[in-house]
Write a protein that binds this DNA or RNA. Structure first.
Length: 461
RNA sequence: UCCUCCUUAGCUCAGUUGGUUAGAGCAUUUGACUGUUAAUCAAAGGGUCCCUGGUUCGAGUCCAGGAGGGGGAGCCA
């Protein structure tokens, strides 16, 4: 069991000692006398070269060391006499844990990302997915660390919910009813009283409302959990199952919310730049030469802040022909957001004070009576990465909005209660985790930043 | 869901105006080679041309329907 991970072996300067390495064979090459084996154990993108003198091993052992096989190697760690790597192992003993025959789908040549999606059970063994998964972890860790360092508490909000939180988005039904024989009530509708929870339930589309309840006690909280949308969205930016981060802060107003969002993004992206330099360099080289520069820009540039109304003025004055017209009161289209970020300001943008009719019921109404204290953070390439707002904490105004938007007030009795008992100004935002991972890895399709993507017509693995 | 493009060997692709036995590179197998870096060189094996139906003397190629995938849009995170 005492083996050393390749990341540590490659960083070591303690040569001429016996070590054991374990991992999966990327490729084997060689000649009549020597075999060179590239071994990778996922601890780093870099592989370790194993050198085996053919005379010292039986023929079958060498033959079994094929691409994809899993082996354990014991030998002497030495300075490599060849170019291309600093260290290598001169093998003394090789144990084969698992063979891999010629039907192994991963070749040492490049594969398309589309093909790799079809073999999602094996794609973690590629350089690209190794990098993506290590970066994904680093970001998740940095997010927890960021909030923990600042006194936030992580709240586990429910995955099964009895409320249609924001009244937006299709939801997945959760039921134990027999779908071949659904019980009906006297009115002919489905009788959910006979269902497991005694009422209609769904998978959550957001933990925000429950998060707000916790913030009204612990002051600073965040959620980081799975989220589900049953929309028939077929795009490189949507998943049916994804992970969302939603901080909620008592006593924060819109300005504080913006400051937190900006500092948060800079810190977690900075963490990835510092701890995943090899992986980011690899992804830059293979997919997107501008990746590193773009990440550096996020960390160094102050985000541009402006109101929705100011943005409309800029778009109107731009004289650029947009496919969709620019009009106060309409939501901004992708092309509008991208123009602001990529062509006008050349840096991240935070837009605030959207018209109330295009935003959710819980957002704090502004003094002007027309807008709400919303904020969207827009990034180059991907558009909106964060959406948030100060929350409406006035009981009457909130109830009014619920009624105006045709929501059932009975469903929100517990949410309304927080505005009845000890209400206070508070704010929060939501961040789609995979969108962040997409931005940091430069992967253009969101299906390539989650191990096993869930999308319409796809639930394999 | 809408628009658009694509589907030929394990992978990436070529395949002429519809015409004999469907090709290449890589991968695989075998052989050669004294330190290779996606090693190199030589040879061999490998095909439900996405599926169903149609047109035609003849369909990988043309037509219709279906399935799957890519890109764009909408919804959104």
């Amino acid at each position: 069991m005492n083996h050393i991970y390749i990341k540590e072996l490659l960083a070591s300067t303690e040569f001429d000692r016996e070590v054991t390495a374990k991992g999966w064979v990327r490729t084997r090459r060689g000649n009549k006398n020597l075999a060179f084996i590239e071994l990778n154990d996922g601890s780093t993108i870099n592989s370790l070269q194993i050198v085996a003198e053919l005379a010292a091993f039986d023929e079958q052992t060498i033959k079994n060391i094929t691409t994809g096989a899993c082996i354990s190697v014991t030998g002497i760690l030495v300075k490599s006499p060849g170019a291309g790597q600093l260290a290598e192992i001169q093998a003394k003993n090789i144990e084969i844990y698992g063979c891999s025959d010629e039907t192994y789908p991963l070749q040492k040549k490049g594969h398309t990302l589309e093909f790799l999606r079809e073999i999602a059970h094996l794609r973690p063994r590629t350089n690209t997915f190794g990098s993506v998964l290590r970066i994904r972890h680093a970001l998740a860790f940095a997010i927890h660390k960021y909030f923990n360092d600042r006194g936030f508490y992580n709240i586990h909000t429910p995955i099964i919910t009895g409320s249609d939180c924001e009244g937006a988005g299709e939801m997945f039904a959760v039921t134990t009813l027999d779908l071949n024989n659904v019980p009906k009530n006297p009115e002919g509708a489905i009788d959910f009283q006979q269902d497991f929870f005694g009422k209609e339930t769904h998978l959550t589309v957001s933990g925000q409302l429950e998060g707000e309840l916790a913030a009204m006690a612990l002051s600073l909280i965040y959620t980081f959990g799975p989220t589900f949308r049953a929309e028939n969205s077929n795009t490189p930016r949507h998943l049916a199952e994804f992970w969302m981060i939603e901080p909620e802060m008592a006593f924060y107003e819109l300005e504080d919310n913006m400051n937190l969002a900006e500092d948060f993004l800079k810190t977690v992206i900075g963490h990835a730049l510092e701890h995943c330099a090899d992986d980011i360099a690899f992804l830059s080289k293979l997919y997107d030469a501008e990746l590193k520069n773009r990440l550096d820009l996020i960390v160094s540039e102050k985000f541009q802040r402006l109101t929705y109304t100011e943005a409309i003025d800029i778009l109107t004055a731009s004289e650029k022909k947009f496919e969709f017209p620019v009009k106060w009161g309409s939501d901004l289209q992708s092309e509008h957001e991208r123009y602001l970020v990529e062509q006008h300001f050349h840096k991240p943008v935070i837009l605030t004070h959207y018209p109330k009719d295009i935003k959710a019921f819980y957002m704090k109404q502004s003094e002007d009576g027309k807008t709400v204290k919303a904020m969207d953070v827009l990034f180059p390439g991907i558009g909106e990465i964060i959406g948030g707002s100060q929350r409406e904490d006035n009981y009457d105004k909130l109830l009014n909005r619920i009624r105006e938007m045709g929501l059932k007030e009975a469903d929100f009795w517990w949410y309304l209660d927080t505005r009845k008992f000890g209400a206070c100004p508070h704010s929060g935002f939501g961040l789609g985790f995979e969108r962040l991972v997409q931005f940091v890895t430069g992967m253009s399709n969101i299906r390539d930043v989650i191990p096993f993507p869930r999308t319409p017509k796809n639930s394999e693995f």
